[in-house]
């Protein structure tokens, strides 16, 4: 049985049970065991890196050490966690000097980074470890006639040199996985541009402008819904629509679902088991289309 240490991060347990439930249930259905390791901490994404890069790297590496001790690869759902942890993992693996520096800090916690484990994005586990065939065979409710706008966000892909998830200019992994579920992946303008999620709280106006651009482009494409990977993109585009409604008097009504939710539905998991009320933009019409 395939096993991974799951890295939940903060936003998912705090606000998005829909992501965690759909991912856990899907993976369990696909024969993957998730191990919850104690004493994980924040992954230290860009806002923390902005306070101090070295500390952030040390904390990210500390979490990887825990996975190394458990002899498990680390699976992340949140793209922010993926970026921080995979970056730290690859930087330290390829830079001996940096590794020594960070290990000196980690020594205080009794840990040492070895570089023996991988940090894997949820999508990589699905496509590379479980495999598209295996996935396809388990689908009971194919997403036929569902037009899905794939949205990668930023931190699953970039910086590509360190993350190596997919081609940063022509990514295909999410499109492929959507097609595997029987859905139609829709192209739209500026697909790879940022949704402004990380600007929320720093400059809400800017953040909303960027989210609005994204929604305009998706709505022009005629997609039924957006598939996201990252809890920050989810917030920016889901709650963002409510905020845009009051600020710009514009209604888009585009359901935003994590890819894991689409996967869970396609695998035949009952919608009511997936905390559907987490969504501010209701997803009933998507559920109805699938069932």
């Amino acid at each position: 049985m395939m096993s991974y240490a799951i890295f939940l991060g903060c936003t998912i347990p705090a606000r998005q049970p829909n992501y965690e439930l759909s991912a856990r249930k899907s993976l369990s259905k696909l024969g993957v065991k998730l191990v919850d390791i104690a004493n994980m901490t924040c992954c230290c994404p860009p806002p923390v890196q902005s306070i101090d890069l070295k500390t952030s790297l040390a904390i990210a590496s500390y979490n990887i050490c825990l996975a190394e001790e458990a002899n498990l690869d680390l699976l992340t759902l949140c793209s922010g966690c993926f970026e921080s942890l995979a970056m730290a993992n690859n930087m330290l693996k390829h830079d001996q000097k940096l590794k020594t520096k960070i290990n000196k800090i980690l020594a205080e916690t009794g840990k040492e980074f070895h570089g023996t484990k991988e940090v894997k994005h949820f999508l990589q586990v699905l496509k590379d470890d479980i495999g598209l065939n295996q996935l396809e065979q388990n689908i009971v409710k194919p997403l036929t006639d569902l037009k899905i706008a794939p949205f990668y966000g930023c931190h699953a892909l970039r910086p590509s040199e360190l993350l190596q998830l997919d081609d940063p200019e022509r990514p295909q992994i999410l499109e492929t996985l959507i097609k595997t579920l029987g859905g139609t992946s829709i192209e739209y303008q500026n697909k790879l541009k940022c949704c402004g999620g990380l600007l929320r709280g720093v400059s809400d106006d800017l953040a909303l402008d960027l989210a609005r651009d994204k929604l305009i482009n998706v709505s022009n494409s005629g997609a039924d819904c957006i598939a996201t990977l990252c809890p920050f993109c989810f917030v920016a585009l889901d709650i963002g629509q409510i905020q845009i409604r009051s600020k710009f008097q514009e209604i888009y009504d585009i359901p935003v679902l994590h890819y894991s939710e689409l996967l869970a539905l396609a695998l035949g998991i009952a919608p009511e088991e997936l905390a559907p009320r987490t969504h501010k933009i209701r997803i009933d019409k998507i559920i109805n289309k699938i069932l």
Partner: peptide
């Protein structure tokens, strides 16, 4: 900076 890494890429 919104940390999108487009520039860096």
């Amino acid at each position: 900076c919104c940390s999108c890494y487009n520039c860096q890429e």
